[in-house]
Computed example of a mutant assay.
Amino acid sequence: MTPSAEELLAIARRYWREDKLYDFRLDHSPEFDRLEALWNEKLKEIDRWWALLGDLRKELPGYSIGDGTAPVNGCYGALVYPPREKALQRPQICWVVVGYLSILAPVYTVYCVRREFLGKQFRGAKAFLGPAPLELRDIAEVVAQRIEANYGATALPLEIAQTPVPLYVHFMEPPRTTLFHALFSSEPENVA
């Protein structure tokens, strides 16, 4: 069962602040210390996440599977890139399927990022948090099924993920900050 927006906000408040009091200070906030302590525990179990990535490699042959885990965020991350031969051609637009498993709450999300290139030069990226484009839905479904099977997490509905929260998550500030930013990443398009 998916936790409510109120329950998820209560969880997020343990790890993110409602002010900038600790910006540019040498000491850490209590929230930062809690997030760091949680990551120290979760990193002891990183082999379990890497096993999930290995399962994705078997289930999605030909695709490049990357680890998008960044301990500054609140989640583990799986990145599914197009098949190697297509990636080598550097198309103008390249899609990446992203699966994030929150370490803060038993929820996950799968979304897509459109990356644009001009030749070999990266031009920009845009995250699409809604349903995956038709040609990527099968891949997104495999990622979702694998996260559910390996971790028992539930998908965070988009309407809850987009709930505004009064928290500062890295450089994401209210009123733009959402539960997505607090539970997963403040930069969903950043999937290099």
Results as ranks from 00 to 15, higher is better:
M1R: 13
T2S: 09
E7K: 13
L9I: 07
I11Q: 08
A12Y: 02
R14L: 14
Y15K: 07
R17I: 00
E18I: 02
D19K: 05
L21G: 06
R25E: 11
D27P: 00
D27Y: 09
E31T: 11
F32I: 05
F32W: 14
L35D: 05
L35Q: 11
E36P: 00
E36Q: 14
E36C: 09
L38R: 15
W39S: 11
L43S: 08
K44E: 15
E45C: 10
D47S: 13
D47F: 03
R48M: 04
W49D: 00
W49H: 15
W49Q: 03
R57A: 14
R57M: 09
E59N: 10
G62Q: 08
D67G: 06
D67C: 14
N73T: 14
C75K: 01
C75N: 10
Y76A: 02
Y76T: 02
Y76E: 03
G77Y: 03
A78V: 03
V80W: 00
P82N: 07
P83C: 06
R84I: 11
K86P: 00
A87S: 12
A87Y: 04
P91H: 12
P91I: 10
Q92T: 15
C94D: 10
V98Y: 01
G99Y: 02
G99F: 01
Y100K: 13
L101I: 08
S102P: 06
A105M: 08
A105P: 05
Y108M: 11
Y111D: 03
R114K: 15
E116R: 15
L118I: 06
K120Q: 11
G124N: 08
K126M: 06
A132D: 07
A132R: 07
P133V: 09
E135L: 11
L136A: 06
R137G: 06
D138Q: 15
V143K: 08
E148N: 01
E148R: 13
G152H: 06
P157R: 04
E159V: 08
Y168V: 14
H170R: 14
F171T: 12
P175E: 03
R176N: 11
R176G: 01
T177G: 02
T178H: 07
T178D: 01
L183R: 04
L183G: 05
F184C: 07
E187F: 09
E187P: 00
E189M: 11
A192S: 10
